[in-house]
Design a protein around this nucleic acid. Structure first.
Lengths: 246, 246
DNA sequence: GCCAGTCGCGAACACTGTTCTCTCTAAGGT
DNA sequence: ACCTTAGAGAGAACAGTGTTCGCGACTGGC
């Protein structure tokens, strides 16, 4: 009468969800290194060995949590993207970049999990981790790709410097992201902007920025605006100063 | 006749060095998570408990190794800086950036150790870790600060956008690095360039760059050249294309 | 009602970091 | 030369960890 899926499987999914929920909680308060299967089992009132009916190992549980974290980030970015005005590309980019930063600061441990070096690198090439990673990166790139479609970006100076090898790499990459419309030079600009964003956040979240920079928010805004404006000169006058209203 | 330091202390220093050497080897092949004090003791033919005469805990051993890694990086950067021609600032910057990348790729695990999120963040504010970190960052900044002293950099467009808060932060930071000569806008440019460098390397070393970019070297060079040229326009024509000879 | 597949548990193994206690050696002072 | 003492090392032990295996119990489908 109720569900077409058998009860057995429904129960299994329920406890699997509870495992992931509890693991997520432990991750958030103890960090990736502090998450222990025994701890999760203890919090759930289960025997440690019982967890292995649901989870293959601690490592795959961590990559599962990493995939979830990527999904959460991608959602946050998508929300910011959709909420921003579609015609002011610079403002929209800044909104997305700020959403990325806010998510990173609010979920520092998950950020460390997905952008730090612990999760096995192979996961990033396949499976749900790769899929959700692509989804979040795609949001970032859409900021620029839509500006490109509106013919507002001038990447000719970059285009002139591209070697054939780089062209091939960039074309393959844009194909991966289903953005075959974009030229190689524009893809290079996307990469540069992403690089800058990630560099700032990695330094800030991992605590490598000097304490003297007690409030990096404005610096972040400036860098993101400049990075975007480097390729996207038309809106520059309208952009950087007080761009999104925060 | 030989050494003024007592023999006792000399022996102690010797085994302490051996501990750090063995730990470094284990770190390099097993990663930071795989390094175990018991393993080090086993490799040295010692009892695990004996290690505690020399090392307070596994964590402080790791931060010690982190400090060493920062020192090694700083040395590599300094070498590249000194070997480059002092009058071609763009080329020198590219040489230093490439040295940074090479060190990161050749010492991926140590790179993960010092720029990943594992080492307790407090270490970066004091002690030898902070000192060696500053030393490496200072080399990067000298590339631009010397160009600034030669009056080759135009950061007026950045300067116009700086808020008082950002000015204060940047001034405090440049004071930390003993570069009080540099203006705040130039410091902001230094930070942007560092951010870009770190973002690219973190993505590449941690395996987050898509495999489609099978040879990111040229892209790296392009990004570094563009980042530097963003502030340093005079030498741009002479710079990016085939800049250092590799 | 039986049967099989699933679930959960307890015990166990092989590890880990860390502490405590014990012994022995060797340096230093008298 | 002797004795004291600080230090080095060893071994056992405690509290954890991930993971495996075998045993019961339960339960959905025939």
């Amino acid at each position: 009468m109720s569900s077409p899926i058998p009860r057995r499987e429904r129960l299994r999914q329920a406890t699997l969800d509870e495992i992931k929920r509890t693991a997520h909680a432990q991750l958030a308060e103890l960090g990736a290194g502090g998450l222990s299967l025994r701890g999760v089992a203890r919090a759930m009132g289960m025997a440690p060995s019982a967890l292995y009916r649901y989870v293959e190992s601690r490592e795959v549980l961590l990559t599962e949590l990493a995939a979830d974290a990527f999904g959460s980030l991608a959602d946050a970015l998508t929300d910011a993207f959709d909420a921003a005005p579609a015609d002011r590309h610079m403002d929209r980019w800044l909104a997305v970049a700020r959403a990325h930063r806010r998510w990173a600061l609010d979920h520092a441990i998950e950020y460390a999990l997905i952008f730090g070096p612990q999760v096995p690198a192979s996961s990033y090439c396949e499976g749900r981790v790769a899929q959700e990673l692509r989804r979040s990166v795609t949001v970032l790139f859409r900021c620029m790709s839509e500006a490109i479609e509106a013919d507002l970006v001038d990447a000719s100076h970059v285009d002139a410097e591209l070697t054939p090898t780089m062209r091939a790499s960039l074309r393959a990459w844009s194909h991966d992201h289903g953005m075959a419309v974009i030229g190689e030079a524009e893809m290079a600009v996307c990469l540069a902007v992403w690089t800058q964003l990630h560099g700032f956040l990695a330094l800030e979240v991992f605590g490598h920025l000097p304490m003297a920079l007690n409030d990096p928010e404005e610096l972040f805004d400036r860098q993101m605006a400049d990075a975007f404006a480097q390729a996207y000169r038309q809106e520059k006058a309208a952009g950087p100063r007080a761009p999104v209203g925060g």
